[in-house]
Nucleic acid binder design. Structure first.
Lengths: 232, 232
DNA sequence: TTGTCGGCTTGACAAATATCAAGCGCGCCG
DNA sequence: CGGCGCGCTTGATATTTGTCAAGCCGACAA
């Protein structure tokens, strides 16, 4: 793979501390590929041959069962996905598709496992990353089981607002149909949920959201770091 | 802590391969305690001072928000819990309480992190365990988002049947109120869901479940290894 | 044995959510 | 410019799920 990509990958928490020789060794077997939008990168049930790293664009992780499907997460640069399947050498639990034009690194899973065994710092980084992912899913589980759809949307908006810089007005950066799926509801109900938040000062214009009364919305949403703070 | 417990802890996947000196070092700082039923061992938000290992009994992991609460998992011997919080040195995301009289080992988190850094085999075991836990939560997430409550119950019964040996008749080993919470429904609805499975040959007598027509129930439940097989 | 407590069940009702069908708005392309 | 097509919205309706109140039943203790 072209060495020009090395620095941005190297800068990832997962790879930043490891021995240079090991990093080079990982990169030797890796390759970068550009994908158009809406391409299915992997399908659930398939063997986990590669660890994926998103360099640019974005990727939707979703799952299907019995004719239904649901979005579980969105992966944005720069981060990895399906680390757990790679580590356990087990089949993927989720499918992945590009949402937009994306540049993605593929690192053979067996190389990752091999370097893991000889590089303590890399091992430490993998554990830290995996623990972060685990905790993120637990938070999402709590969000789903403890909150109504209106509360989930309210808290999502507050999180997104923070991510966008904290201003009173910001853009949704996902399609509403996907947002609905992520939040565990239908697109129709998402529409109604937005209306349901109007009394708390939320205004919607296309993908632009305006929060009229921050305190009011927070009073309804009751955000909680043990659910909504994805950094811990 | 009394050395009599060493063998059963040592036999745990997490500790079985590590150097003896390191294991001894971990055990030196650890201690075992017996708890009566319904004791809250840890509360969400507290700092993660100890890695816990359940030797006997069982522990309920649950969470609370805004006056509601939900059961997220049950920990049975012999296994650990709150590994991720220990690794990240972050606050617990879930509370834990004993369901019955339980014997539990407490290992100081900082010891676990210290030994992790010097024992590659231990590190490998932690990663494997963490990846297993991660995948278990993803499966649970799919179960929640892709299935109706009736389907969740049907698949739960099939899993429990398998765990109990596979016979047509078996015992539920959780209180129904807790089962309802785990499955994301109210106790009232669980009662109705059991009735809803009667047409598929499910009979309930107290905590005893009988599956009259295995194929019929499986045809309705459509179990899937990517959701229901907790071993991968 | 009898009383009581807690968990489970049931029924009636209310609220939340999904489904279906139609229409709207906007970008894209002929 | 006009007409699709697609995502979003809206309304009507059905289904699912939760809530509240009451009753049942078995475990346990007096």
């Amino acid at each position: 793979m072209p060495e020009s990509h090395y620095p941005e990958i190297r800068a990832l928490g997962l790879f930043s501390g490891m021995a240079d020789a090991h990093f080079q060794s990982l990169m030797r077997g890796a390759y970068v590929q550009n994908f158009p939008p809406q391409i299915e990168l992997i399908g659930e049930g398939e063997p986990s041959d590669f660890l994926h790293v998103v360099l640019s664009g974005s990727v939707d992780l979703f799952s299907t069962w019995n004719g239904r499907d649901t979005s579980l997460a969105t992966v944005r640069p720069i981060s990895t996905f399906i680390l757990a399947a790679t580590i356990r050498n087990a089949p993927y639990l989720m499918s992945a598709r590009t949402l937009e034009k994306s540049r993605i690194v593929l690192i053979p899973s067996q190389d990752v496992r091999a370097i893991f065994d000889v590089d303590g710092i890399f091992a430490r980084a993998i554990v830290t990353e995996l623990a972060r992912c685990y905790r993120a899913v637990i938070k999402s589980q709590k969000d789903l089981k403890l909150r109504t759809s209106l509360e989930r949307l309210a808290n999502y908006l507050l999180r997104q607002q923070k991510r966008a810089g904290g201003g009173a007005s910001f853009e949704l950066d996902v399609e509403k149909r996907r947002l609905a799926s992520v939040l565990g509801m239908t697109p129709e109900n998402l529409s109604r949920a937005f209306k349901g938040l109007q009394p708390y000062g939320v205004a919607v214009d296309g993908t632009r959201i305006s929060i009229g009364d921050q305190a009011d919305l927070e009073g309804f949403a009751r955000p909680n770091p043990l659910i909504d703070d994805f950094s811990t």
